Computed example of a mutant assay.
Amino acid sequence: MYTPAHFAASEEAVASLLHDSEAANLVTMTEDGLLATLLPFVYEPTVGEHGALHAHMARNNTQWSMPATGEALMIVQGSDAYISPSWYASKAQHGRVVPTWNYSTAHVYGELVIHDDAQWLARHVRRLSDQHETGMPQPWSVDEAPERFIAGQLRAIVGVELLISRVEAKTKLSQNRTPADVDGVIAGLRAVGDSASAADVERARTS
């Protein structure tokens, strides 16, 4: 990943991306070429030497059964946003400004391990459901569904574990702009209703 020094992600930013992101594209190189699937995941920092991403896919998806060549890759995407040059204070000063795109992303590499057993899958889907149901007005639990129904659903999926070997991450959040321009970006993002991206820029400025 091309990452200028001022856009390099801190350890805290990487941990936040892995903890707070909800899904990632799993990319593998196989004999049939590149395959990719968007998967919801759970970050498990205590698994393996560098942590792991746990996910699952449909059993009918052939990607899990196609032997991967080399490392697998999961692309984690944080918030992203168009940045208008009209938001920069420097536009009025000299006009030498152009549009850009702010974003946070992590390329997570590692060994892909397939889990085709009901116990691993049951723990995983419960963990994944609990992660997303937290904060709901009436949180749903796996236990609310009939046991035989859940067993049937588990037979239709396969567990996917990426044992992390390395992470390349980038947070391009206006760190190369002047303080006045950053103020304008934050105000502009809030004005268009993108409070998440505005908060990311705010955090990058103070980190």
Rank of each mutant, 00 (worst) to 15 (best):
T3A: 11
T3Q: 10
A5K: 09
H6P: 01
H6A: 09
A9K: 03
A9M: 12
S10G: 08
E11R: 02
A13T: 11
V14N: 09
V14S: 05
A15Y: 03
L18Y: 00
L18S: 04
V27C: 07
E31H: 10
L35T: 06
L38S: 04
P40Q: 11
P40W: 10
F41N: 01
F41G: 03
F41A: 15
F41S: 05
V42E: 14
E44V: 11
E44Y: 00
T46P: 06
V47M: 08
G48T: 02
E49M: 10
G51C: 12
A52G: 06
H54Y: 04
A55I: 02
H56F: 09
H56D: 10
H56E: 04
H56K: 14
A58M: 08
T62L: 14
Q63D: 01
S65T: 13
M66P: 03
M66I: 01
M66V: 02
P67C: 10
A68W: 00
T69Y: 05
T69E: 13
E71Y: 06
A72Q: 01
L73N: 03
I75G: 04
V76A: 05
Q77C: 11
G78M: 03
G78Q: 06
S79L: 13
Y82I: 03
I83P: 00
S86R: 03
Y88A: 03
Y88M: 08
S90F: 01
Q93M: 14
H94Q: 11
G95M: 07
R96G: 10
V97A: 06
V97C: 00
V98D: 02
T100R: 06
W101K: 07
N102A: 07
T105E: 15
A106P: 02
A106C: 08
V108N: 01
G110K: 01
G110D: 04
E111M: 08
E111A: 14
D117H: 11
A118I: 15
W120Q: 04
A122M: 07
R123H: 12
R127K: 14
L128W: 00
L128I: 03
S129A: 15
S129Q: 13
S129F: 11
Q131K: 13
H132D: 06
M136D: 07
M136G: 06
Q138N: 12
W140Y: 11
W140R: 12
W140I: 09
S141F: 08
V142H: 02
V142C: 03
A145P: 06
R148G: 03
F149N: 15
I150M: 06
Q153A: 09
L154D: 13
L154M: 12
R155F: 09
A156Q: 08
V158T: 09
V160I: 09
V160W: 04
L162W: 05
L162M: 07
L163Y: 10
I164D: 00
R166Q: 10
R166V: 12
R166W: 02
V167Y: 00
E168W: 02
Q175I: 04
Q175N: 13
R177H: 15
T178N: 07
D181W: 04
G184R: 01
I186P: 01
I186K: 00
A187C: 04
R190W: 08
V192N: 10
V192T: 12
V192R: 13
D194H: 05
S195F: 14
S195V: 12
A196H: 11
A196L: 12
S197I: 01
S197N: 07
A199R: 10
D200V: 02
V201L: 04
E202Y: 03
R203K: 11
R205C: 03
